[in-house]
Simulated scan of single mutants.
Amino acid sequence: MKYVRLLQELKREDLSLAGGKGANLGELVLAGMKVPQGFVLTVEGYRHCIPKIRLPKINVEDLPALEAVTSKIQMEIENVSLPREVTLEVLETYRRMGSPTVAVRSSATAEDLPGASFAGQQETYLNIQGERAVLEAIKKCWASLWSSRAVQYRLLQGFGESEAALAVVIQEMAPHEVSGVVFTVNPLTNNSSELIINAVHGIGESLVQGEIIPDQWIARRPDGAILKFVPAPKKGQSPFPLRTQRPARGCLTSQQVREVVCLCLQIEKHFDGVPQDIEWSYGLGEFYLLQSRPITTLKD
């Protein structure tokens, strides 16, 4: 196929083709992790469908002017007609997966880099079901590359518009009784002997976006022994519980904490020991790995 690659066909060297998210998912498959099945509509698909975009000269700090320009670009992208050859490749691959409910995730070529965090700059669409909905979500992901926030961030980081391109990951929704993030080095203290695990019940997108307070564990490397547990405050409850209150139970057991720590340290080792920010979900008795990227907030 010309525009589509299965996750298992991708490696970290494919960043320019599959974007950071797609390339790293391929590496997780290569590392033997349990990764939900999926594929990537590559950057070649984006370039084949979207005419080259040139921004007018504009003050990047002038947000109203920037918003006026970028909203027009986004509308044009969302209304584009997909060429038959791209549509066929996407839908044939989706059907071979069994046409499941999927997550449709943006995967930019300038994201998940050690020197800059582009995470969250483009959109993700969850629980997408059906062929038409998948195609529409792909176009929305492409359009999110040109939101005012994403354009401003790229320009301020020194990335020109010619460097902007977007692959899209289409991946079966993983079971998600619990979802979370692991930092393989404590990014709050730079302590390399500790990991931080954040977790919530259900889908983890609100956690990734910083919208809710998770249960949090600080665990010891390499065995995953729990050093500290801070439960998420219950609705209407103070985040500083009284001593008379029973200790809260988190959404993971101590054994599950150890298990996810073991998995994440294997991933860090696979990525040459570079500390990782790893997204996962848990369901049906197993952990599923959804993403891994370098931690960009650590101090040298």
Rank of each mutant, 00 (worst) to 15 (best):
G120P: 06
F118G: 15
T101E: 15
V102A: 10
I138H: 00
A108I: 11
P100K: 12
G120L: 14
V102K: 12
T93G: 05
T109P: 05
I138P: 05
A119D: 00
G120K: 03
K140T: 00
I138G: 01
A119I: 06
I128A: 03
C141M: 05
D112R: 15
T101Y: 00
M97N: 08
L135T: 06
T101V: 11
Q122I: 04
W142R: 00
S99T: 14
L126I: 07
R95D: 05
G98S: 06
A103V: 03
P100R: 12
D112H: 13
P114Y: 10
L135I: 09
I138T: 01
Q121N: 14
P114N: 09
T93D: 04
N127M: 08
C141F: 12
E136R: 06
I138K: 02
A143N: 05
P100V: 04
T124N: 07
K139N: 04
V134K: 08
S117Q: 08
K139V: 02
V134H: 07
I128K: 02
A133Y: 00
A116P: 00
S106Q: 07
G98H: 01
L91D: 03
A116T: 05
F118N: 00
T93I: 04
E131K: 11
A103H: 00
G115N: 14
T124C: 06
P114L: 12
T109W: 02
L113E: 12
Q129C: 03
C141V: 11
E136N: 09
E131V: 08
Y94P: 02
Y94F: 13
V104Q: 06
A133E: 14
F118Y: 15
A119Y: 13
A133T: 08
S117N: 12
T93C: 12
G120N: 06
G120Q: 06
Y94G: 05
L126D: 01
K140Q: 15
S117K: 07
A143Y: 14
R105M: 07
L113I: 10
R96M: 04
Q122R: 01
Q122E: 15
E123N: 10
R96A: 08
A119K: 14
A133H: 09
E131C: 08
V102T: 08
S106W: 10
L126V: 05
T93L: 02
W142Y: 14
E136G: 03
L113Y: 12
T124Y: 07
S99K: 13
M97V: 05
A103F: 00
D112A: 10
